[in-house]
């Protein structure tokens, strides 16, 4: 479903601040794969997601989604294939617009936006039902401005927006990192529910090793813009945090010096 082939990306190339964020990255995901991504700060996790989403163009390599080479497509055109949830709850929604209006914008992802009404009453009722499913008490305030919602509610709405039209690929960029533990658990539970219901191919970055192990059928670890560890299937089911740390030390030739990954 997703093929990243030998992708390179260097920021500020040719200056003293040059930083190679992706160094020959390759990754293949099969349809229905739910792959969690871990790695230290600056390992290239978010850069990988941004390369897939087309936030900027890669220096080298190819990105192929569902057999279609999207390497040269601009961000807004690739959006037709992607559902995205960001780390910052502010990023995924338009704060000054209603919950219903945000959902209506997402429902039209990948379609031509013409002079038909931006949202119909029928749609609004449909969204009310979907919001009721979230069990966050949002069904009674369908037309409220998203800016009035809490961070957790906003992430839940963003997740709903990302999956309203079944995306070829769901990109989750530490989407629970800014939430308190209880809310984070709830949003993760919701993520699992939607991903398994719609059989979505998913890439989820997390800084939490326990979450990375508990969710999905595949786990990759990144370092210096490359994948250094790739565990799937039965191996992943048996994985513990201690295993993961040992495997990381083997693969990287050094210990994990990042408290956030262990404690998070």
């Amino acid at each position: 479903m997703l093929k990243i082939e030998n992708v390179y990306k260097t920021f500020n190339a040719g200056t003293v601040n040059a930083k190679t964020a992706l160094a020959g990255l390759s990754l293949h995901l099969k349809p229905g794969d739910f792959c969690t991504v871990i790695g230290g700060n600056g390992a290239g996790k978010s850069t990988m997601l941004n390369a897939v989403a087309g936030v900027w163009h890669v220096d080298e390599g190819k990105v192929i989604i569902d057999g279609k080479d999207v390497t040269d497509l601009p961000e807004h055109k690739r959006a037709a294939y992607l559902g995205r949830v960001f780390q910052d709850p502010m990023t995924g929604t338009a704060a000054t617009m209603g919950i219903d209006e945000n959902l209506a914008l997402a429902a039209r992802r990948g379609q031509r936006r013409g002079l038909k009404w931006g949202i119909s009453n029928q749609e609004r009722e449909h969204y009310r039902a979907l919001l009721a499913d979230l069990d966050l008490g949002l069904e009674g305030r369908v037309s409220s401005k998203v800016g009035l919602l809490s961070g957790g509610q906003r992430q839940a709405v963003t997740l709903l927006m990302a999956t309203l039209q079944k995306p070829k690929l769901l990109l989750l960029d530490e989407h629970t990192a800014a939430l308190d533990p209880k809310t984070a658990a709830k949003v993760l539970e919701l993520t699992d529910k939607i991903v398994s219901r719609d059989q979505l191919t998913t890439l989820m970055i997390t800084h939490n090793m326990k979450d990375a192990i508990a969710h999905g059928n595949r786990l990759i670890m990144m370092k210096d813009g490359k994948i250094i560890l790739d565990i799937a299937g039965e191996d992943k089911k048996k994985l513990t945090v201690a295993d993961l740390m040992a495997r990381f030390a083997d693969a990287a030739g050094e210990g994990i010096a990042n408290d956030r990954m262990i404690l998070g």
Binding site: T91, G92, A94, M97, L105, R108, R109, M161
Partner: peptide
């Protein structure tokens, strides 16, 4: 309106 409110969100929604 979405473009004015949040460009990153707007682009992510195509």
């Amino acid at each position: 309106r979405a473009t004015g409110a949040n460009q990153a969100m707007a682009r992510a929604q195509g």
